[in-house]
Amino acid sequence: MSGVRGPGGLPEQSRGARGVRGARGAGLALHDVTVRHHGPYGPVTAVDGVSLEIARGRTVGLVGESGSGKSTLARAIVGLDRPCAGRIAIDGREYPVRRAADRRRWGRRVQLVFQDPDTALDPRMTVRQSLAEAAGAFARLDRRAREQRVGELLELVGLDAGCAGRLPGQLSGGQRQRVAVARALAVDPAVLVADEVTSALDVSVRAALLGMLRELQRRMGFAMLFISHDLAAVRQVSDAVAVMYLGRIVETASNEALPGGARHPYTRTLLSAVPSLHTGRRPGGEALPLSGEAPDPASPPAGCRFHPRCPVGPSRRPGREVCAVQDPWDETARVACHFPYPAGDGPEHA
């Protein structure tokens, strides 16, 4: 299977070039996943009918603003939040809903790396204890085997064996994040969810961590969902990019197609907001200012959810009233918009 539903733009050869482990259909598959929270004023649909497939050995980047539901989706995939509808399957096997023992075993297939390395590790446990706990979570290991596994894991993430005895407080942010990655990979999961793993890190360590994640993926063959608001980082590790807005995926595109090939106005807005060193030359094309605040997910706007803020929507372009009435979103479309930009980089809207 290709990285994302709707294979357009993913060249065959690049798929073959990477060592993909496992059979067809292996990896993560989300179908129509919906997650609701109890908000102060009634239920809030944080994730609304998200479908996504990530094959083993592939990475899909998920971008979106805070409140778009990307972290909720991550928590649902690893079983910390329970979806109220839809299916989540890994390697063809579905997420067990009821029994606690099954839910525990789910952790063997999918693991999560958190945003903030300062809080992701128990501050009172040494690196060795944390890693040993993870390694022993699903396998009975004696003392020797555990010690050996801890050594392997540290080597895997490029850390010195001397780090094993340290407490998280004695490591740098980048080192802590490496330990967190090692802990997640200790169970050899089929799917790794990385939630904003680089946003708390300095630029000089960021690149190294991204490089390491890609190298580990190549070696271990897990499918990865890479969640970030940093589009540059997403582009650096992902095979395909999915853009989320108010609980829904509004566009999916192959990495190669971006940034010029972005078709949804929201994607364009995101891209154009990325600051560039070369003043005045924004790689995402013309500057598209976003007006207004992100709407409350508890009561999303009617029609296209983006229409109150859309730079080419009904409030700016007469004749596009349909946007405010009719929802352009549907399960199978790659772009949820009535008036998408053309697939090439033609400035139809200008």
């Binding site: 690893v78 079983g79 910390l80 525990r104 789910w106 693991q111 128990d122 967190a180 802990r183 997640a184």
Partner: peptide, 12 residues
């Protein structure tokens, strides 16, 4: 905390 969430994901 995140580390508790991580521990729960590990199925402890």
């Amino acid at each position: 905390t995140d580390f508790m969430a991580a521990a729960r994901v590990l199925g402890l």
